[in-house]
Simulated scan of single mutants.
Amino acid sequence: METDSVIHQLAIRVGNQLRAERLLLATAESCTGGLVATAITEISGSSQWFERGFITYSNQSKAEMIGVPTELIERHGAVSEPVARAMAEGALRNSRAQIAVAVTGIAGPGGATERKPVGTVHFAWSNRLHTTSEMLLFKGERQQIRLLAAIHALRGVLKLLDEQEV
Score class of each variant (00 low, 15 high):
residue 158 L to F: 10
residue 106 I to H: 07
residue 116 K to G: 09
residue 35 L to H: 09
residue 88 A to R: 04
residue 34 G to V: 04
residue 54 F to Q: 04
residue 33 G to M: 08
residue 63 A to F: 14
residue 84 A to K: 01
residue 93 R to F: 08
residue 48 Q to P: 00
residue 89 E to T: 13
residue 123 F to A: 04
residue 158 L to Q: 08
residue 127 N to C: 12
residue 65 M to W: 12
residue 114 E to L: 12
residue 55 I to M: 05
residue 154 L to E: 04
residue 82 P to L: 09
residue 145 I to P: 03
residue 21 E to S: 13
residue 126 S to V: 09
residue 8 H to S: 15
residue 135 M to F: 04
residue 112 A to L: 03
residue 82 P to S: 10
residue 102 A to S: 15
residue 8 H to Y: 13
residue 37 A to Q: 13
residue 156 G to W: 00
residue 56 T to V: 15
residue 57 Y to C: 06
residue 108 G to K: 10
residue 120 T to I: 01
residue 144 Q to E: 11
residue 20 A to R: 09
residue 102 A to V: 13
residue 129 L to K: 15
residue 99 I to P: 07
residue 90 G to T: 05
residue 29 E to W: 03
residue 19 R to G: 00
residue 107 A to E: 12
residue 89 E to H: 10
residue 31 C to E: 05
residue 49 W to R: 07
residue 38 T to Q: 12
residue 116 K to I: 10
residue 11 A to G: 03
residue 155 R to N: 10
residue 32 T to A: 00
residue 57 Y to F: 10
residue 149 A to T: 02
residue 128 R to Y: 02
residue 93 R to L: 14
residue 103 V to A: 07
residue 116 K to H: 14
residue 148 L to A: 06
residue 6 V to W: 05
residue 119 G to L: 02
residue 152 H to E: 11
residue 99 I to C: 13
residue 65 M to N: 14
residue 121 V to E: 01
residue 138 F to L: 13
residue 128 R to V: 04
residue 165 E to N: 14
residue 131 T to W: 01
residue 49 W to S: 03
residue 94 N to P: 06
residue 61 S to W: 02
residue 166 V to H: 13
residue 76 H to S: 13
residue 12 I to C: 05
residue 150 A to W: 03
residue 62 K to S: 04
residue 164 Q to Y: 04
residue 21 E to V: 03
residue 98 Q to L: 12
residue 10 L to G: 03
residue 78 A to R: 00
residue 66 I to T: 04
residue 116 K to W: 10
residue 15 G to W: 00
